[in-house]
Design a binder for these strands. Sequence first.
DNA 1: ATCGGACTTCGTGAAATGTCGAACTCCCTT
DNA 2: AAGGGAGTTCGACATTTCACGAAGTCCGAT
Lengths: 236, 236
Amino acid sequence: MKPGQRQQLAEKIAGEITLSDVPGKALKKWRTSFSISPGVLADHLGVSPSVISDYESGRRKSPGTAVVGKIIDSLFAIDEEKGGIFAKKYSTMLFSDLDDEVIYDIHDFSDAVPVNDFADAINCSLICGGSDHRIVGYTVVNSLNAILTLSPNEFNRIYGWSTERALIFTEVSSGKSPMVAIRVTPFKPPCVILQGIDPNLVHPLVPRLAERDRITVYSTEESIEDIITILRRQAW
Amino acid sequence: MKPGQRQQLAEKIAGEITLSDVPGKALKKWRTSFSISPGVLADHLGVSPSVISDYESGRRKSPGTAVVGKIIDSLFAIDEEKGGIFAKKYSTMLFSDLDDEVIYDIHDFSDAVPVNDFADAINCSLICGGSDHRIVGYTVVNSLNAILTLSPNEFNRIYGWSTERALIFTEVSSGKSPMVAIRVTPFKPPCVILQGIDPNLVHPLVPRLAERDRITVYSTEESIEDIITILRRQAW
DNA sequence: ATCGGACTTCGTGAAATGTCGAACTCCCTT
DNA sequence: AAGGGAGTTCGACATTTCACGAAGTCCGAT
């Protein structure tokens, strides 16, 4: 399961628990969905089984975010030890096959980050545009598959929860197609990063297309794996 | 903004806050996204402004789920008073146009509900199948639009976060097409409800198709609006 | 410069959380 | 029927949250 998918699922679960009038019930529902017994969960959390019981029975009416987070983490960790049964089942269910081939990673920060900090982290060269933009997330998409296979509706999904994000197109040949795709899309990211291309080989049309929508463009030759690893490690 | 969309967005926000290492920062990020000042939020919550400040500065490291829920509620309520600026912006961004025309409502319970309790609530007549199933959510889809316009990938989305749910098809003519659509779909709901049709007029093929996948089928003549209202009011 | 409003910091007390361990209730198994 | 293991209930207590309000800090406007 990809980190982005896991995060999305974890957020959904956390959200449901947090917004529930009876968080304990929701907690229990998800623990049982993961087919994890109270004892095993308690063990993994390093607490006594009565603690789990107390939460699920509703003795603690409004558990803190830290507790909820730790429990969800444990659910995923235990599932992973068991071979990721739950994760596997849900990832085929919740995310279409396309997501897998198109979206390599998608993440939202809890705070705005200056684009140049972001670009520096993954060794980017500036192609055009100012560096005064700020972003609150990023999306890494497979350029070719995105353009070939996404319907207009589905294309919107790559924006995650905010358009204030960096769009990273992977394995671009000249960068022209991705910029054209953005040109015809109603939502404009403040920042585009072209992966897998020497800054000097970027198509001359790219800056002209970018300027129309006031988009800052970078290029980077870091590998896709490295980029995802680096970004995931950041404290943003 | 539809209740289902609002709920989804609220859950996403709650999830992000709950899973954040620094919930205060996430809280602030969303408050500012809604363009709401600390003072106004405090007023709406009926607390002193220092409370907001304390949360956002991180003095409360792990706020309870109740607090987080109330704050998110207020954000949406204040936004609504202002004409739903934020909701409008985000609903066009996060949900494709299709969602609007196809999915009337989508919701997950915090607990499993017996299908017959569910069916009774919206005045259903049993067409076929047993009543020992349990569901943890429901989806109301416009039958015609779902079948006409959804790509196979998008079709999966109507399942929300669990396949253990009731699928309510609206304005069916005979019920045959929805059952055929389900027949060819890899995920099988335990329960299907055909809306807008007299139980005697349901196509004779429906029970035969349903039995193949062990699906319980009901029909109801309640209006779509009433169904959504009734279900939203339930304590599930 | 100075005033005023909005926001933040911080001390404080009441209430609730977070955790434990002992005692208790249910099955399951032999 | 008896014995155990797993799970739940509950009293206890240290730690935090939650909310207030006074005092302090930042602006933006006069």
